[in-house]
């Protein structure tokens, strides 16, 4: 059981930046950024390739830089070139498939066999015993979350938030929405890349399908977290993303070990959770209307 929890905690931290990225793009900027899947793979691919070349630490910022560039392409398509935002993400994502293969040296699977990763390096410091991977993953991802929260309190951060909140206001208050959307998507995809980079080194493997479904999983984590902690300040939002991510991985680990449902069904279950969660307000409204109608009918019958 402890092992399951440890695994869930580690994966929860490792994948949390994806949910953090969606918190920024989907919640704050109000853009469904479908670059996420490809950006995650790109992050893992770059990280594993650079790590294989002997630079495990450099691998992480480099991976983030590459995924930020992917975010920039998506942003450029939708701000300057008039491509609808969802389609812009899909186009970038499709193009990234080739880029990702290229980043892995034209194979669909790249592995680290003997090369040292940042996790090895941290292990050598002798901190935390069997918890050392969790500690490193936790420290790096939580630090990225705190940096994001600090960033959202700056003038640029406030402008990004206003862009997602009231486009009319933004145009009338000397903020260039093209700029804020671009910065927002670059930062969001850099976070996705961070997650991919860490997962790649932790699993010592990157493959072309590693990011498949990542956007929906990230949304699930975001929604689970918001359900548990509620929505409020930026700090609460960022932390709820971690809570959601860890809960999701616990569910995943339990499903994996208890055979409640086959693990192959996990993506379907995730998709249903996300669809229901996003549809909840509409369903509630419909249900309330039906009750109201029924009550009115009953009232008439009684007279």
């Amino acid at each position: 059981m402890l092992y399951i929890l440890q695994t869930a905690l580690e994966l929860g931290f490792l994948y949390a930046p994806v949910a953090l990225a969606l918190f920024l793009s989907y919640r704050i900027l109000d853009i469904a950024d479908l670059t996420t899947d490809g950006a995650f793979t790109l992050g893992a691919a770059v990280s594993v390739t650079v790590c294989a070349a002997g630079h495990p630490i450099l691998a992480v910022p480099l991976a983030m830089l590459c995924t930020a560039a992917a975010g920039f392409v998506t942003a450029l398509l939708q701000t300057k070139l008039g491509v609808p935002s969802i389609l812009a993400g899909i186009i970038t994502n499709t193009g990234l498939y080739t880029v990702n293969l290229m980043a892995m040296g034209w194979t669909s699977n790249a592995s680290l066999i003997k090369q040292r990763t940042i996790f090895h390096m941290f292990q050598d410091l002798g901190v935390g015993g069997s918890w050392n991977e969790i500690i490193l993953a936790g420290v790096l991802t939580l630090a990225s979350a705190l940096l994001l929260v600090a960033f959202l309190g700056t003038r640029l951060g406030l402008s990004i938030r206003a862009t997602g909140d009231n486009r009319d206001m933004v145009r009338a208050s000397s903020i260039n929405p093209t700029f804020t959307i671009t910065v927002g998507l670059c930062v969001a995809n850099a976070l996705t890349g961070l997650s991919g980079a860490l997962v790649g080194q932790a699993q010592r493997n990157a493959n072309i399908n590693i990011g498949t479904g990542m956007v929906v999983i990230g949304l699930a984590c975001l929604i689970i977290g918001e359900t548990v902690l509620g929505r409020g300040s930026m700090l609460r939002g960022a932390l709820s993303v971690f809570v959601g991510s860890i809960i999701y991985r616990v569910i995943y680990a339990v499903a994996l070990s208890s055979k409640v449902f086959p693990i192959e069904a996990m993506k379907l279950v995730t998709a249903i959770i996300v669809a229901l969660a996003i549809a909840a307000p509409s369903i509630q409204k419909w249900a309330a209307f039906q009750r109201r109608k029924a009550a009115a009918r009953a009232g008439k019958g009684g007279v």
Partner: peptide
Amino acid sequence: RGTAPHMTIGENLAL
């Protein structure tokens, strides 16, 4: 149209 509803009064003024 002139204010961002999900941001606080302070944040709107800051902007």
